[in-house]
Amino acid sequence: MSADDPAWEQASLARVLPVVRPRKLAKVPFVELADGRLQGVVSSGSDIERVYVSSVTAGAHGLSCSTNNNRPCGGLRGGRPCKHLAALLDEAVLQYGRERVARYLRVEVEEGQELAAGLRGAHEPAPAAVVFSRFLRHLSYLELPDSTLPIPELHWFPAAATTAAAGAVR
């Protein structure tokens, strides 16, 4: 690294994008744009111990929804999203913004139209275990005691990166 490099390239912190609007985590506690999919965990409306791992593949719009113990969602038929996928899409829009989610999924929808209207995919099972495992890992971090000491496995994780903090850490 040289002194000519931008400050953010010399920092050990990464910029974190704030959420577009606050989310209610009870229905969709985990949503991410990762691995070429919009994916996340959606709570069951009927059983407090059941969750669904739902995903939409970017580009092809493959739809997947199954329980945490790999049972298929009864509401996902053909190319129409089930209620779990609809909830995931809604929460992704709150988390990342409509434009970013549409761009990531490569969905073209008119203004005022829901993203689900632009999906042209079919049922395509996706690996639910990886998404559910990542969700459980995120939950485990919530159980850690409050501390200002670094957590070795999270040394790369953006804790409270702001422009000022990122420029100050070298």
Rank of each mutant, 00 (worst) to 15 (best):
residue 26 A to C: 08
residue 27 K to F: 11
residue 29 P to K: 13
residue 30 F to S: 07
residue 30 F to K: 10
residue 30 F to P: 07
residue 31 V to G: 08
residue 32 E to W: 15
residue 32 E to R: 15
residue 32 E to Y: 10
residue 33 L to N: 12
residue 33 L to M: 14
residue 34 A to M: 12
residue 35 D to M: 13
residue 37 R to I: 06
residue 40 G to C: 04
residue 41 V to D: 09
residue 43 S to A: 14
residue 43 S to R: 15
residue 44 S to E: 05
residue 44 S to V: 04
residue 46 S to R: 14
residue 46 S to M: 09
residue 46 S to T: 03
residue 48 I to F: 07
residue 49 E to Y: 15
residue 49 E to F: 15
residue 51 V to A: 12
residue 52 Y to W: 11
residue 52 Y to K: 15
residue 55 S to G: 13
residue 55 S to Y: 08
residue 55 S to V: 08
residue 55 S to A: 15
residue 57 T to L: 06
residue 58 A to C: 04
residue 58 A to M: 00
residue 58 A to H: 02
residue 59 G to I: 10
residue 59 G to K: 09
residue 59 G to S: 07
residue 61 H to Y: 06
residue 62 G to N: 00
residue 63 L to D: 02
residue 64 S to I: 00
residue 64 S to N: 02
residue 66 S to E: 12
residue 67 T to I: 05
residue 67 T to H: 12
residue 68 N to M: 00
residue 68 N to T: 00
residue 70 N to A: 07
residue 71 R to A: 01
residue 72 P to D: 09
residue 72 P to N: 01
residue 73 C to L: 06
residue 74 G to W: 15
residue 74 G to P: 03
residue 77 R to N: 05
residue 77 R to M: 08
residue 78 G to F: 07
residue 78 G to C: 04
residue 79 G to P: 01
residue 79 G to I: 01
residue 79 G to N: 10
residue 80 R to K: 13
residue 80 R to F: 10
residue 80 R to H: 11
residue 81 P to L: 06
residue 81 P to H: 09
residue 82 C to S: 06
residue 86 A to R: 14
residue 86 A to D: 04
residue 89 L to T: 03
residue 89 L to N: 10
residue 89 L to K: 04
residue 90 D to L: 03
residue 91 E to G: 11
residue 91 E to C: 12
residue 92 A to M: 12
residue 93 V to G: 00
residue 93 V to E: 05
residue 93 V to M: 01
residue 94 L to S: 06
residue 94 L to C: 05
residue 96 Y to C: 01
residue 99 E to L: 11
residue 99 E to P: 02
residue 99 E to D: 05
residue 100 R to V: 11
residue 101 V to S: 09
residue 101 V to I: 10
residue 104 Y to H: 11
residue 104 Y to N: 07
residue 104 Y to Q: 13
residue 106 R to Q: 12
residue 106 R to P: 06
residue 107 V to E: 05
residue 109 V to M: 01
residue 110 E to V: 07
residue 110 E to W: 15
residue 111 E to Q: 13
residue 111 E to R: 13
residue 111 E to V: 07
residue 112 G to V: 05
residue 112 G to C: 06
residue 113 Q to W: 08
residue 113 Q to G: 04
residue 115 L to Q: 02
residue 117 A to H: 13
residue 117 A to Q: 14
residue 119 L to H: 12
residue 119 L to F: 12
residue 121 G to R: 04
residue 121 G to T: 02
residue 121 G to P: 00
residue 121 G to I: 03
residue 122 A to W: 11
residue 122 A to N: 14
residue 124 E to P: 00
residue 125 P to L: 04
residue 127 P to Q: 06
residue 128 A to Y: 08
residue 129 A to M: 10
residue 129 A to W: 13
residue 130 V to I: 06
residue 132 F to E: 07
residue 132 F to L: 13
residue 133 S to R: 08
residue 133 S to N: 10
residue 134 R to L: 09
residue 135 F to D: 02
residue 136 L to H: 06
residue 136 L to T: 04
residue 137 R to I: 11
residue 138 H to Y: 14
residue 140 S to A: 15
residue 140 S to G: 14
residue 141 Y to F: 12
residue 142 L to P: 00
residue 142 L to R: 01
residue 144 L to F: 04
residue 144 L to S: 00
residue 145 P to H: 09
